[in-house]
């Protein structure tokens, strides 16, 4: 993380976020560094509990206190360390410069306010718009997100919109103050497949059109493949592999990434007799093993993996992996167990 590119918008360095639980301290995010450049789409991929959502909440200063606490690291955003800002200063950044889109479009909108009010409110607070200006902006952003007849729709309440439409509304609210970065936490997980495609296409288009950078947090490898420029794979609070989407998918250099890619059935491949699952259970963050957290589930683990935590090191250019045996892993295509049967 020494060479910070000139167009780096968000630079997270060695971020550590902890939660106090009745079973002890959980290091939800454990020394994670990553960055987002202006206008690009970066993905944080991982399963529940890997720390991807907590990373986003840490950036927004929204980690639930008092149990949760950012205990270390820096979050540089446009020349300022967000962790050093006061709550008032953070409030100006939230929604204005960094906006967030949540997973649940049903519950992230206030049911008793018109959608117009929910969009204009942000513009009035952050941009100092008059009600008339804010209204005009609201109609405009509804147009951007593909909701026609904005003037009429603004008077309606969230329950009058379907799930996909509500997610468009969330994106419209996020866009309304022209942020530099949108954090989208599982933006399509609650939506149907055909609607998912619409929403992701929309986010990609808007990013191109307005130069907004996107950070997509997801567990869905398919979503990442289609929309992300760069990918960070997280496991048990750490980044285990990062690189461009193409590198990660064509040549995964971490057994976890490899396992994820192999375990999902794919429509473009012949049907396999059996899937190749990752063995074992997701890690219990209160009692992580010494060494690599993935080692207990890893088919390639050697003794060293159980003793020393592997650092994130380059396996070719910007492609990095935190694995002692990264160089000797097989490719994605090599299927050890599955005999192929014709579809």
């Amino acid at each position: 993380m020494t060479d910070v590119a000139a167009d780096t918008l968000l630079d997270v360095r060695d971020l550590r976020t902890e939660f106090a639980t009745s079973h002890g301290v959980v290091r939800a995010v454990d020394g994670v560094s990553w960055d987002v450049r202006a206008g690009e789409t970066v993905a944080l991929v991982g399963e529940s509990g890997c720390g991807k959502s907590v990373s986003a909440l840490s950036i927004m200063g929204l980690v639930a206190r008092p149990a949760g606490r950012v205990v270390g690291g820096e979050i540089w955003f446009k020349g300022r360390d967000l962790l050093k800002l006061s709550e008032d200063e953070m409030r100006d950044i939230r929604g204005r410069e960094i906006a967030m889109v949540f997973q649940e479009p049903m519950t992230s909108l206030n049911p008793v306010l018109t959608v117009g009010r929910q969009i204009t409110e942000a513009c009035e607070i952050h941009l100092g718009y008059t009600p008339t200006q804010a209204h005009a902006r609201a109609v405009e952003v509804l147009g951007f997100v593909g909701i026609p007849d904005g003037a009429r729709r603004l008077k309606q309440y969230p329950h009058q919109f379907s799930g996909g439409m509500r997610q468009r509304l969330m994106i419209a609210i996020a866009l309304s103050c022209r942020p530099d970065l949108i954090l989208a936490d599982e933006p399509t997980t609650a939506l149907d497949v055909t609607i998912q495609a619409q929403i992701l296409d929309l986010m990609k288009d808007l990013s191109r059109q307005f130069g907004t950078a996107n950070l997509i947090i997801t567990h869905n490898l398919g979503v990442v493949a289609r929309y992300a420029d760069r990918v960070n794979v997280m496991y048990a609070g750490k980044i285990v592999e990062r690189g461009t989407a193409r590198e990660i998918y064509a040549n995964p250099r971490h057994p976890y990434t490899l396992g994820l890619l192999r375990s999902v059935p794919r429509l473009d491949e012949p049907k396999r007799a059996r899937l190749d699952p990752i063995q074992g259970q997701p890690p219990d963050l209160t009692r992580l093993p010494p060494g690599c957290a993935f080692a207990p589930r890893c088919a390639f683990a050697i003794d060293r993996c159980r003793a020393e935590v592997p650092p994130l090191t380059s396996v070719g250019g910007a492609h990095q992996s935190a694995c002692w045996v990264a160089d000797s892993l097989p490719g994605v295509a090599a299927k050890p167990v599955a005999e192929q049967v014709p579809a």
Partner: peptide, 21 residues
């Protein structure tokens, strides 16, 4: 609409996106 976990394939894939809900 089902995404395929492979950016290479995705970038060439012709998709039929349904309008409406």
């Amino acid at each position: 609409a089902v995404p395929i976990p492979d950016p290479e394939i995705e970038s060439h894939r012709q998709r039929m996106v349904l309008g409406g809900e």
